[in-house]
Design a protein around this nucleic acid. Structure first.
Lengths: 345, 345
DNA sequence: TATTAGCACTCAAATAACACGAGTGCTAAC
DNA sequence: GTTAGCACTCGTGTTATTTGAGTGCTAATA
C-alpha cells in the first residue's frame, strides 16, 4: 500500500489535531476541516489503511484515531509546517535572554529557563563532559581553620571549595602551595590530573607542609572530580501539571523521577547526537518511551559548550518548539559574541 | 465541660490512629484498642463531647472522627510520647551526616537531605539573612576578557562571580583593585556597603582605571546583593507522591508551588521563632493551612547559622520528626566542633 | 448515675442498569 | 472510486440500588 497524497493529508490532519486537542480524532471531525473535502466514510477507509500501515492506532473500537510514534516521526520529518517565529516572539525571547546575560557562567541555565517559559514544557540544559585544562590553582586564606581552593580553567570556568585544614597555616604556606600546584598541573586536563597520585606529588614537592597536604588534597581531588561532572539544570517542571496527559499522580511522579535522576538523565542527554535532534517515543530509552525529547547544541566559535532541550509529551508542538530552540541557541551566540549590538529604535 | 482523663486518652488514641492510617476513626475501632476498655457507645458520647469542644470533626454524619488543628496542638504539647531515638537510628543518622561533612559550606544542605531521608517528608534548610562582614575582596584573572571576583566573609563564606570586562587589563590592575576594594570595604557589613555609592568610590580611588571600574562594579554590586539573599534548599519533594493526602494532582501541585516559590517560602521560614518550633494548620499562613511545619535552628557557638525543617501533612509523626530534627541539629554541631571524636567500638 | 445495648438513621462509596453518542466497519448504491 | 446508510461497539455519564461503617438517641442495666 502506498502513502498517496490524500493519505498524507489525512495523517497530517490527525497528528496536528491530536497535538492540539489530546483527544482521539474521528472521521467526522476530520471531514469538517476546510482542507479535507471527502466524506467521513472515505476518511474511514483511508484511516483504516493508515492503521494497517502502522501510522495510526485505536484506543478502542469506537474511539477516534491516535497517531503512532511512526506518524509523529513522519510528521516531524515531512509533514509539519516550519513556520518562522514572528518578530514579536523573537523580541520576547531576545528580551528574556538579555535579562540574564550579565551572569556569564549562568547563561545556559538562564537560557533553559527562557526555553521552558516559551514552550510551556520541561526544559533542561546540560554542559558537556568537558576536557577542561587547568589555568591556575589558588589557595586563599579564610580564617584560622579553613582555606578556599579556587581552580580556574582555560575556558574561563571557575570552581571553588571551602576546605577545613587540620593545622595552622600562614599566608606564605598558601602562596607556596598555590605556586606548586599551578606549576604541577596547569595546562593539564582535569581527568589527566586525576590519574596521578596527587597526594604523593604534594608531599614530594612540599615536604615541609605534609600536615597541610593531608588535609587539603582530599578536598582538591573532590573538587576536580566535581569539575568532571556534567551540570544539569532543569526548568519548568511545573508545566507538567497543566498537561492533560499528566492528570494522574503516577505520571507526574514519573516525570519527576526522570528529571531528578540527574546521573541517568544527563547521561541520556550527553550521549545524543549533535545539532537539532528530535526523538520520539520508542526512539528513546524505555523510561522515556511516552515522551518526546528535543535537544540542540549551543556553540561558541564552533565548539559545543552546552546542550539545551525540552522534554514533553509526544503530542508536542514540534514546529514551534524547534523554532524556539533554534532561535535561542543561535541567539545565545550573539549575546556572547556581539556585545552592544545596534538596537533598532 | 472538662477534658477528663478518659477524654484525653480517647483524643490521644484518635490522633495517633489517624496519624498512622489517614482514615477517620470510628468508635468501634477505638473500643478494640487494648488501652481503651469502654464500649463503643461510651466512646461515641465522649467523642461527641470532644467535637463540641472543638477537638474533633466529622467529614460527614456517618464517618468516623478526625482531629482538628486544636487536637494536633494538644497532642504535640501534652499527649504524644517523646521517645528517644534508638541507638541504631542515631547511628544511621550520624553516618549519613558524616558522608557530607567534608563539604564545609554545604553542611546545611546535606543535613536537610538527611532529614528528608529519615522522615520521608519534604525538608528544607535556610540560612539566615546574615549581617556578614567582608574579610577581603579579590579580583583574579581568567582570560583576556573576564575576571573572577571573589568575596570572602569573616564567617568563612565565599562568593564568586565571573565578570566580563570591557577592556584589557593587567594583573597589576587587578591586584591594585583588590587592594583598594579590600581596604575600602573590609570589616563592613554587606548591607552597609550597598548603601554607599560604590561606583563613585572606585572612580575616586582608582582614577586611572575608570574603564575597568565601569565594567566591574555592576558585577560587584550584583554579587553583594546575592550575598544578602537567604539560601533555601529543598529536599525530598518526591516524598509527597507517597502520601495519601496528595493523591491528587492539584494537591501535589500546591506543594510544589509552595516549595518553589523560594522568596515567599524562605520569608516564612526566616521569620519563625528560634528553637524547635511546630506550627500546625491554621497556625501557619493561609497557603500552608493544610500543612504542619517543624523547624529547628542549627547553631555554632551559640550563634544561629541556619534553620532546618520539614513540611508535611498535619497528620505527621510529630514525635519521630521532632526527635530526628533535634538529633540532627545537635549532631551537626558536633561534626563541626569536635573533630575525631572517640568512636565506641 | 454512669455505662452500654439496641436500633433507627445517615451518607459516602461501590455496584448495577441504562441511555447516549461518537466512532467504527461493512455493504450496497451512486 | 466515493459515499450514504446502517448495525454494531464501547467509553462516558446518569440514575437507582445496595452496602456498610458510623452516628445519635433512648431505654435498659449495673
Amino acid at each position: 500500500m502506498e502513502l498517496n497524497d490524500r493519505k498524507l493529508k489525512i495523517l497530517q490532519a490527525v497528528v496536528a489535531d491530536f497535538i492540539n486537542s489530546a483527544e482521539p480524532i474521528g472521521s467526522r471531525t476530520l471531514s469538517k476541516r476546510d482542507d479535507i473535502d471527502v466524506s467521513p466514510a472515505t476518511i474511514r477507509n483511508e484511516m483504516s489503511d493508515l492503521e494497517e500501515m502502522g501510522y495510526l492506532t485505536h484506543p478502542h473500537t469506537s474511539a477516534g484515531r491516535v497517531p503512532s510514534d511512526k506518524a509523529y516521526r513522519l510528521y516531524v520529518d515531512e509533514l509539519m509546517s516550519h513556520s518562522e517565529l514572528s518578530p514579536e516572539e523573537k523580541e520576547v525571547i531576545k528580551e528574556k535572554l538579555d535579562q540574564g546575560s550579565e551572569e556569564l557562567d549562568r547563561t545556559l541555565e538562564h537560557a533553559s529557563k527562557v526555553l521552558s517559559e516559551m514552550t510551556n514544557l520541561v526544559s533542561f540544559a546540560v554542559t558537556p563532559k568537558e576536557e577542561n585544562k587547568i589555568k591556575y590553582i589558588n589557595f586563599l586564606p579564610v580564617d584560622e581553620t579553613s582555606v578556599v581552593l579556587m581552580i580556574v580553567c582555560e575556558n574561563g570556568r571557575v570552581s571553588n571549595t571551602a576546605i577545613r585544614v587540620g593545622c595552622p597555616y600562614t599566608e606564605e604556606n598558601l602562596t607556596l602551595m598555590s605556586k606548586v600546584a599551578t606549576h604541577n598541573y596547569s595546562g593539564q586536563s582535569v581527568s589527566n590530573i586525576l590519574t596521578q597520585d596527587i597526594m604523593e606529588e604534594f608531599e614530594r614537592d612540599l615536604p615541609q607542609l605534609t600536615g597541610m597536604s593531608s588535609s587539603v588534597v582530599p578536598g582538591f581531588i573532590k573538587t576536580l572530580e566535581k569539575m568532571l561532572d556534567v551540570d544539569l539544570y532543569v526548568n519548568g517542571y511545573k508545566n507538567v501539571f497543566a498537561l492533560p496527559e499528566f492528570n494522574d499522580v503516577e505520571k507526574v511522579k514519573d516525570v519527576y523521577d526522570i528529571v531528578t535522576n540527574k546521573d541517568q538523565f544527563s547521561q541520556v542527554l550527553v550521549n545524543r547526537d549533535n545539532g537539532l535532534v528530535v526523538t520520539i517515543g520508542d526512539e528513546n530509552s524505555p523510561d522515556l518511551k511516552d515522551f518526546a525529547l528535543i535537544t540542540a547544541d549551543y556553540r561558541v566559535n564552533g565548539k559545543m559548550v552546552g546542550r539545551l532541550g525540552v522534554l514533553g509529551p509526544k503530542r508536542m508542538k514540534y514546529d514551534e518548539v524547534t523554532s524556539v530552540i533554534k532561535y535561542i541557541t543561535d541567539n545565545m551566540n550573539n549575546t556572547f559574541e556581539i556585545e552592544g549590538e545596534v538596537q533598532d529604535e
